[in-house]
Design a protein around this nucleic acid. Structure first.
Lengths: 189, 189
DNA sequence: GTCTATAGTGGGATAGAC
DNA sequence: GTCTATCCCACTATAGAC
C-alpha cells in the first residue's frame, strides 16, 4: 500500500466485482471501467490482477488467525469463547463483506506461495476452534455431539453470512449478534 | 440427454473441475483433456460450455423446489418439516456434491433465461422455508427469534455442507443426519 | 497518472476430413 | 465420434508518448 489511496480504491472496486461474478470472471478491463480509466493505467498502481486478490484475502486471513489466537488464550469458558468467535465474524461480515466473499470463493486463485500460506492459516484457525469445542464437551458445557458437525455448522453459517446480511439488510448488528448466538448455541426450540 | 451416456460423462467430468476452480476458470480445453479428447470433439455432444452448467444446476434446482413443495404440504408439525428439509439436503449433498457446488457458486453464469428461472426457484424455496418457520413460531414450537436468522443459519449450513462432507468424509449418513438435526434444532448446549 | 498501441496467449466455437 | 486447422475475440500485461 505504498502508493496509498489510489491503489486502495482499485482494490475496493475490484472486490465488489469479484463478489458479484467471481475473480476469474472479472477482467482487468472491467475493473478499469468502474474506475473510469483504461486497463493499462491500472498497472501503474498494481503489479497484476492476482496481487489485488492477494491484498484482499491475505490481510483478512491474518486478521481471522490473529483474532482466533487472541480469543483462544483468554481466561473464559469454551462457550464464552465460541460466543466471541461468532461476534468477531459478524463484525468482519458487516464491515468487509467483499473481502470475505473473495476469501471464501477465490482463495484457490491465489499464487502458489500465498495459497499455501492461506491453507495453513485456515487449518490453524479450524484446529483452534476444534480445540475449544473439545474442551467444552470435556467440561460438560457443550453437548456430546460429533465435534466436526458442531464445528462446521457454526463455521459455515458464519462464513456465508455475508451473502444475506445486506439483502435482509440493515438488521441492527447487536440484534444480529444476540439472535445469531442464540440460534447457534441454544438452537431454535 | 437424448444422446445418452457420452454427454452425461462430459457433465460429470466438467462438474468436478467446476467444483475445484469455478466455472469461469475452467476451459473447454480442460474438460476435453480429462475426457481424453480434443476440445472440438466436445461440440459433437454439447452446444456450449454454458449448456453444461445449465444441465448441472437447473435439474438440481428443480429437485430442491419440488422436494420443498412436497414437504411443505405434508400433515406434519413445522419442526418435523424442518427435519425433513435437513435430511433432504444431506441426501443430495452425499450423492451430488459437484452439482451443489455449481448451484451455489456459479448460478450467475447461467444464460439470462435460466438465471431468471433459477432466482425465481430459489426465492420460492426460501419463502416456503420461511413460512414453515413462521408457523412453528406462531404455534410455539419454535423459539421466538428473528425468523430470518433461523432461516439462514440452517440454510447456509446445509448449502455448504458439500464443502466438508468429503474431507471429514465417510461419516455415516445416518449419524450425520442425526447430529445435524440435533445441532441445528436443539443447539449445542 | 493516463493514454494509445500492441505483444503474446488462450478463450469458445466451427468447418470439414476421416 | 474424433481429429486438424482455423476463426475471431478477449484476456493480461508491457512500452513509450504525453
Amino acid at each position: 500500500m505504498r502508493t496509498g489511496t489510489r491503489k486502495e480504491e482499485i482494490v475496493v472496486e475490484a472486490s465488489k466485482l469479484f463478489k458479484e461474478k467471481g475473480y476469474s470472471a472479472v477482467s482487468v478491463r472491467d475493473i478499469a471501467q468502474v474506475m473510469g480509466i483504461k486497463a493499462a493505467s491500472l498497472y501503474n498502481h498494481i503489479d497484476s490482477k492476482q496481487e489485488i486478490l492477494a491484498l484482499l484475502i491475505m490481510e483478512l486471513a491474518r486478521e481471522f488467525t490473529e483474532g482466533m489466537r487472541e480469543i483462544r488464550q483468554r481466561s473464559e469458558t469454551p462457550l464464552e469463547k465460541i460466543r466471541a468467535v461468532i461476534e468477531m465474524h459478524i463484525d468482519i461480515t458487516v464491515s468487509r463483506s467483499e473481502a470475505l466473499a473473495a476469501l471464501n470463493n477465490d482463495w484457490m486463485h491465489l499464487g502458489e506461495e500465498d495459497r499455501v500460506e492461506f491453507v495453513r492459516m485456515r487449518e490453524d484457525y479450524e484446529e483452534n476452534f476444534r480445540q475449544v469445542i473439545h474442551k467444552g464437551i470435556q467440561e460438560g458445557e457443550i453437548r456430546n455431539l460429533h465435534p466436526e458437525v458442531i464445528l462446521f455448522s457454526i463455521l459455515s453459517t458464519l462464513r456465508t453470512l455475508y451473502l444475506w446480511y445486506q439483502k435482509r439488510g440493515k438488521l441492527d448488528v447487536n440484534v444480529l449478534k444476540k439472535d445469531m448466538v442464540a440460534v447457534l448455541i441454544q438452537g431454535i426450540v
